[in-house]
Design a protein around this nucleic acid. Structure first.
Lengths: 197, 197
DNA sequence: ACGATATAGTTTCGAGTCGATACCAACTGT
DNA sequence: ACAGTTGGTATCGACTCGAAACTATATCGT
């Protein structure tokens, strides 16, 4: 809490501490699921599977992304399959693995994502503030993920495993070619390109 | 860092969308409660009651802050009282109301707040970036709270209800004098001073 | 080639969260 | 004085979460 109120009234609150609280609070407000058809975890799962590339659309990858256990992730996926928003497909390359796809109903549901309000609020910020915010959040997320020893997620376009071509790119990690749309998808094997900090 | 390699693959990612997702993800990582004695809701409640001023340390105020129902807030408070981290006190001014205090054990527990990691990460950012981030987050939180029609919380030092003295301040809202430490506390009746945007 | 080990996924359990609803006690306005 | 509001609690059902136990498939080491 407060604990260090400098000089007179000046600089009363510990700015850093406030920020951590603020981030949590902001996320909480943004994820408010009252009068929504899904829970926060379900929304997060739906969003994840809509954004993840074909190597990362599995319950395991989601559990890592969501910083939870495979068991918990499995339940969330199950509930969304039951609701008809996700569907399972066999993975030809690995019989243990299940490939998850968002159904048309799932994509339609995403239009009602409660995160839309936060996106709107953020989009109203000045362009340069948005840019700074984006960079700062990514840096903080990566540093925190490192500290907590959980994998960092990112798009293939930014991944050091990728060698770009003109219309496709080669991913050294999965040893396969990626189409242009795929480059914009989340990948569990993400490794930031360039200097880390 | 990276994230903006336009031209070639050209503006692949929707920056705004990334940011909303990032904020939620960052908060999720920061609140990770694995190998922690409390749940995320319990930590939030404990933090709230440690920061809130004497007018706001009630289950109702917490329920508004946490954007949930009084019933849910009541349960969380109850669990923390059972754990000996909070304690109830009678409110002389209103017999219906319960004043919540953080016990010494509760304050000790706060030292192990999982949010500490995020605070550390944020404190390592350059000073000017921190300042920008803080202002931006506050603005976004206020705008989102307005959109969602939930009250905004803030410290009395920033509240338009307050008239500052030298060592105390008068709060027009609660019609009482505030001591200096109290000025740094959260208040449910917070009304931002100065221009709104 | 084959056993040890690792990985993908599911299920079950108990404690907690959450919104909704119903309810009681105490305050407020007129 | 009394209707309406507010503060708080209890209960219900669906969901979350971590942990643990379990099955099936891959992979590694020799």
């Amino acid at each position: 809490m407060r604990q260090q109120q400098r000089d007179l009234w000046g600089d009363i609150t510990d700015m850093t501490q406030d920020m951590a609280d603020l981030i949590v609070h902001l996320a909480r407000l943004a994820q408010n699921t009252a009068r929504t058809d899904l829970t926060a975890a379900q929304w997060t799962a739906l969003r994840f599977f809509a954004r993840a590339n074909r190597f990362s659309r599995t319950p395991s990858a989601f559990s890592e992304f969501h910083a939870t256990t495979r068991g918990t992730a499995s339940q969330t996926v199950k509930s969304l399959v039951t609701l008809g928003l996700l569907q399972r497909q066999n993975n030809a390359a690995d019989a243990r693995s299940t490939l998850i796809e968002v159904t048309p109903a799932g994509h339609e549901m995403l239009c009602r994502d409660p995160l839309g309000d936060l996106r709107r609020v953020l989009s109203e910020l000045p362009e340069d503030v948005q840019r700074t915010l984006s960079v700062t959040l990514q840096r903080a997320t990566m540093n925190l993920a490192t500290l907590r020893q959980v994998p960092t997620f990112g798009t293939c376009a930014d991944c050091s495993h990728c060698k770009e071509g003109t219309d496709t790119a080669y991913c050294h990690c999965t040893e396969s070619m990626l189409t242009r749309p795929e480059m914009a998808s989340f990948c569990i094997d993400f490794q930031p390109a360039g200097r880390v900090d």
